[in-house]
Write a protein that binds this DNA or RNA. Structure first.
Lengths: 216, 216
DNA sequence: TAGATTGTTAATCGATTAACAATC
DNA sequence: TAGATTGTTAATCGATTAACAATC
């Protein structure tokens, strides 16, 4: 079944559904209606049914949705068992935090190496992930058919490294550099984690609630 | 000037404007029209003018916008010089990465302490930030009038700690626990950093570009 | 002044919500 | 069967884009 272009609003809700379904399964609940789900997630039943119907018919009239089946479908839709090969570039604090704590396998990726320029980390193995010198990256990417890169280098190197990665054949970049990447190759898929944007949003929301200072 | 309720779409674009304006200023450009800005950012001039006009009249007909003035206005709108007092709870890999690398001052906050339960870190000072025992948190919050908390504890403690923070008078939580927080106090402002959601989105986008496997 | 570009009102487009026939 | 709940079509709502008078 070929799917139409699906709005990114819908896609960005899928992980939330997944988390909720995991939670339900964990609590031993095996079926749920769009009405109940909506109440628990703060969405309308209509929206939930619309969202799911972008991808197929996962429910049953008069019954609702089977939690496990729905979870499986969404997981499939997002490609979470793809195991896309990924490397992490820039093994600083952030990089290390990800290598140590983040379970890439659960989210569609297989972290197969780290790269850095510093002799302090090159050659080490962190949480079962070997760290290589950045000069060996090109070779590694082509030999291992790496799909994605997690970019954690200092921001001044961001564009440079990103463009190299694109040249080496990387298809997607998860960008932690806090910059807007400017790539020559516009087919590379980029997903930004902008801590600062998020924190500024929080600042705005706090500011908003503060009593207005009237400068009369 | 009292502002209407402004859509979060607009607010979430403000940091992007800010980053672009910083970039322009850095390159010595001191004025720009909505047309030019739109071209550079991939937005329509209309949208840009609409966005700004939510907050006031920052431009000049026939001229455009003064980069520095606009930058200043947006910074003000987001409250980036507020210096809201913040504490970081949970000094693991993620917490440490933030303390070491993230410049809270630039984004409206003043990081004034860290808290953890482990004797390994309590008493230490990381990048000028002192780490205290979590049992001393309540006292610290009330004595120092702390507004916000950066939550980096393991997910199993997330709800517990978050609810404590709310009880202690925290107004906003920047949530790195990868869970949907369930708070009794619904006045607390929560901003989530969901790494997994972001990575799943990337997985989807890669999956989408893959050739369809026809299971005929 | 003439040209450029704003701020704002109106038109369009897309996303969310409501309604309802189909059916388990 | 009767009640519940889906998937989908239609209605509404909100956000983006276009148009244009105002004006620097």
């Amino acid at each position: 079944m070929k799917r139409d272009k699906i709005s990114s609003n819908v896609i960005r809700r899928l992980p939330r559904y997944l988390r909720k379904l995991d939670d339900l399964a964990y609590h031993g609940i095996d079926r749920i209606s769009s009405g109940q789900l909506g109440k628990q997630m703060g969405l309308t039943p209509s929206q939930i049914r619309q969202d799911f119907s972008c991808f197929g018919e996962f429910g049953q009239q008069g019954y609702g949705y089977n939690v496990e089946k729905l979870r499986e479908e969404i997981s499939q839709i997002m490609g979470l068992d793809s195991g896309f090969k990924a490397i992490l570039v820039g093994v600083g604090n952030m990089g290390r935090a990800l290598i140590n704590n983040f379970n890439f396998n659960n989210y569609g990726f297989n972290l197969c190496a780290g790269f850095d320029a510093s002799e302090d980390v090159v050659g080490k193995t962190i949480n079962e992930t070997e760290i290589f010198h950045i000069d060996d990256m090109e070779k590694f990417i082509s030999e291992n058919e790496v799909t994605a890169a997690i970019l954690c280098v200092p921001r001044r190197h961001a564009d440079n490294v990103a463009n190299s990665l694109a040249t080496f054949g990387i298809k997607a970049i998860w960008n932690f550099t806090n910059t807007e990447l400017t790539l020559e190759d516009d087919t590379v898929i980029i997903e930004d984690i902008h801590f600062s944007d998020s924190l500024m949003y929080l600042s705005y929301r706090i500011t908003e609630t503060l009593p207005d200072e009237d400068d009369t």
